[in-house]
């Protein structure tokens, strides 16, 4: 129940996220009498009930935090049934579709529900999400999840292939999201689903050929402001970098004692990350020693992650005016 409103404490039936480590987050449905195995040992579900979200729990071999679910954390921890959309794209979709509390949205397909949760968070409590999935098991699993997460009242999951069978909605939605192999085949049906006063449409496609055909079809069906974009998250690793300063004095002219002192000094500096106050003072120390001593140049550095997503998909947005 903890997705649809913000709770203070954990109760039975809540989905909580166990934060075991940065890249290790697991969803857990709190169930009476159950035990969950983590890499830090067993966690009794009963032991977290009544605890405040954000609490640190001592497991046999380490700490675990119980976090309140958010669509963003869910995206990082959900069971993958398909390739999913991530928060960079999801954010853009929700923003560009002009979603707000009360919006009615049609989504095809549901996939693993990564985007659906972000849509639901935004349109609550008066909006509605009509979501379609052509894969039967996935549709059922999604339905179950939405129920589990307290979204039942705001979402309708339909097992249907929208390509071919269409949305079968009659001018009731504000926005349409398409993540389909052949989105251009669904533009007519999407248009019919959209309110007479108009609305926004988004199509997500990995290949440029899909985008081209979709844009052509959108244009033919009098959609305007057809814009295609790509957005990629680039993460920074924050490192306390250390670059050796070379000496330009022949070592013969330098006393060994001097050298050792300066080295000891550099050893006394914090070996890993440190607060800015500490950083500044250590930087100052360097300055005192001069810029070209035999020590090292230490600085906090924002280093772009060596590997980043190069492509997720093209996002095409379009406006339908009153029709």
């Amino acid at each position: 129940m903890s997705f649809s409103s913000i709770k203070q404490t954990v109760g039975y039936g809540d989905t909580v996220l166990l934060h075991v480590g940065y890249d290790n987050m697991l969803p857990m449905i709190v169930t009476k009498g159950m035990t969950h195995q983590t890499k830090f040992g067993a966690l009794r579900h009963d032991s977290v009930v009544g605890k405040k979200f954000g609490t640190r729990i001592q497991c046999p071999k380490g700490w675990i935090y119980i976090l309140h679910p958010t669509p963003e954390l869910w995206t990082l921890s959900l069971p993958h049934r398909t390739q999913i959309l991530y928060t960079t794209d999801i954010s853009m979709v929700v923003f560009q579709l002009d979603l707000q509390p009360g919006s009615v949205v049609a989504e095809a397909g549901t996939g693993s529900g990564s985007l659906s949760h972000a849509i639901l968070r935004t349109i609550l409590p008066t909006g509605h999400l009509h979501t379609y999935e052509f894969h039967k098991e996935r549709a059922e699993k999604a339905k179950e999840e939405f129920h589990q997460h307290g979204h039942s009242g705001c979402v309708t999951v339909t097992h249907r292939d929208v390509c071919g069978e269409g949305f079968q909605l009659d001018h009731i939605v504000d926005a349409v999201f398409l993540d389909l192999p052949k989105p251009w085949e669904c533009v007519t049906s999407a248009k019919k689903a959209m309110k007479k006063q108009g609305g926004r449409l988004c199509s997500f496609s990995p290949c440029i050929e899909q985008v081209q055909r979709t844009c052509e079809e959108l244009s033919a069906q009098n959609f305007s402001d057809i814009v295609t974009m790509e957005c990629l998250a680039r993460h920074f690793n924050i490192q306390y970098a250390k670059l050796q300063n070379l000496s330009f004095e022949s070592s013969a002219s330098e006393s060994t004692a001097d050298k050792e002192t300066s080295n000891r000094e550099s050893y006394s500096e914090p070996p890993v990350k440190s607060a800015s106050a500490t950083l500044s003072s250590s930087r100052h120390k360097e300055v005192k020693r001069g810029g070209s001593d035999s020590g090292s140049h230490n600085f906090p550095s924002a280093v772009p992650a060596l590997n980043m997503p190069g492509h997720t998909g093209f996002l095409t947005f379009a406006t339908l005016t009153c029709h």
Binding site: P206, C207, E209, R234, H235, L306, M308, H311
Partner: peptide, 11 residues
């Protein structure tokens, strides 16, 4: 199936 490569170097 034309698209940018799924993975790229960040720096």
């Amino acid at each position: 199936r034309t698209h940018p490569k799924i993975n790229m170097s960040g720096t």
